[in-house]
Every structure is written in C-alpha cells, then in structure tokens.
C-alpha cells in the first residue's frame, strides 16, 4: 500500500478519536462509563505487564484453534472434492452446523472441556473450520475442466493433479477463507473465556467490567483488535510468499503502464 492510500483511513481514525476525546471532556462523562481514548491508550501501555500473560493465553487458544482447523478442514475439503457423493451427503450437515448459534454452545463446552484453554480452542476451531472448508472446496471445484483434461491426458492421477493443479488453483480462495477465519477466531476464544475461564483477555475483561474498570475493558479490546489485525497480516504475508506469481503479474502490469 502506498502512503497516500493510508492517508484517508488514518485521518478518519484520528478524527473519530479527537471527536471522542472532546465529547467525553466537554460533556464531563465519568471514566467508568466512557473513558477518553487517551486514557485507554495510556492504560493499554502501562497495564501491559498485567495484560500480557492474558493476551498470551488468548493468542495460544486462537493459534491452536487455527492450526487444528487447518488440520481438519483441509483434509475434509479434499476428501469432499475427491468424492462428490460424500460432498452431497455432508454439505447439508455443514450448512446446518452453521445454523447452530455456536456461542450458545459455550457454556456446554465449559462443562465438557473444563475451564482450561481447550473449551476456547474448540470454540475458535468451530468458527474457523467452516469458512476454510467451504472456501477451499469451492476453490478446488472452480478448476477449469480443460486443465483437468490436459492433466488426464498427461496421465496424471488424482493426487498428482491435486498437487500440480487443484491445490495451487484453489489457493486464492483458500486464503480469502482463512483471512475471514482468523479474524473471527478471536471472537470464539473471547466468548469462551467470558463463560468460564481462569485466564485470557476475555476473563480479564469480565473481571474489569465487574469492577467498573472500563479503561481496562477498552484496553483489552484494543489488544484483541491488534491481535486480530496481526493474524490477518500474517496470513496476508503467507499469501504473498506462497502465491508469488500474483506479485509477478502485478509487477508486469505496472511495467506496462
């Protein structure tokens, strides 16, 4: 992104913060109802030693959730792609599973998996699993049949086609699903922590909320957003590193102009 592209969003955010700050100060709103952004920023920094271990726990839950989701969604998507009959049988269940409000499951998960990280990992997994499976499957299915014919004529079997053709073909869609997944994964982990936990940013938020320490609640939200953005950027970085040909065509187009 160029600096000029950053200018407008930065100015917008700065404007909102300034308005917020002015509003709180002019209206004399108590900090436990709405703290000014300056106080939140200050709190997020000086309370870092308190927040850090909780953030680490939440991050661990999210990352485990992502890793397990990748480890299950990728084989399932490939399996459904390889066996269209199974896809027909399974996809109603996949869709129906999304109709279940997963957040309503959170209390049950605490009963089943305890107050430790695993109930939260499970929540994160449930949320990420679906977009990855669906995006990868539709990416695999979007492969041009003419290419499939070409590879069949080359004598390639299914796994060879998967490696050389379907998988790279599906990567752009896979990554857009993964990007959606990792940003919402935070929600799953935090709600899991709200319901019952001993550690984590969600736990810290609930504790601070009960004590009307609103600044700390906002500071936690700030940290969570930063984590979400960080994950998003990480996936974006991986995407650029893996799909280098996209960068090539980009350079080419710029050269032409």
């Amino acid at each position: 992104m160029k600096w000029s592209d950053m200018l407008f969003p930065s100015a917008l955010i700065l404007g909102i913060l300034v308005l917020w700050e002015a509003f709180v100060r002019v209206m004399n709103i108590p900090a436990f109802i709405l703290p000014p952004p300056s106080a939140i920023g200050f709190c997020a920094v000086i309370k870092a030693p308190l927040i850090w271990p909780h953030a680490l726990t939440t991050a661990l839950e999210i990352i485990l959730g992502i890793v397990i989701a990748l480890g299950t969604a990728i084989p399932l998507a490939i399996f459904m792609f390889a066996r269209p009959g199974i896809e027909k049988g399974l996809s109603p269940f996949l869709v129906a599973s999304q109709a279940v409000p997963v957040f309503a499951l959170a209390p049950l998960l605490v009963i089943w998996l305890g107050y430790g990280i695993w109930s939260k990992v499970f929540m994160a997994w449930v949320i990420i699993f679906f977009p990855i499976t669906v995006s990868l499957l539709s990416g695999l299915k979007s492969c041009d049949p003419d290419f499939r014919r070409l590879f069949t004529l080359m004598g390639a079997g299914f796994w060879m086609k998967l490696r050389l053709l379907y998988w790279p073909w599906a990567l752009p869609q896979f990554f857009s699903g993964l990007k959606v997944g990792v940003t919402v994964a935070t929600i799953g982990a935090v709600i899991g922590e709200w319901v019952g936990a001993q550690k984590g940013l969600g736990y810290l938020m609930i504790q601070s909320n009960a004590r009307l320490n609103t600044e700390l609640v906002f500071a936690c939200i700030l940290w969570l957003s930063a984590m979400g953005l960080g994950l998003w950027a990480l996936v974006g970085f991986a995407e650029k590193r893996i799909m280098t040909w996209k960068n090539n065509s980009f350079i080419k187009r710029k050269d032409k102009q």
Binding site: F151, M154, G155, A156, G157, M160, K161, L164
Partner: peptide
C-alpha cells in the same frame, strides 16, 4: 515440463 512431472 509438466507432462514429464505429472507422470508417476
């Protein structure tokens, strides 16, 4: 090289 690579 794909036709060569695609053969088992």
């Amino acid at each position: 090289l794909l036709p060569v690579q695609a053969k088992p």
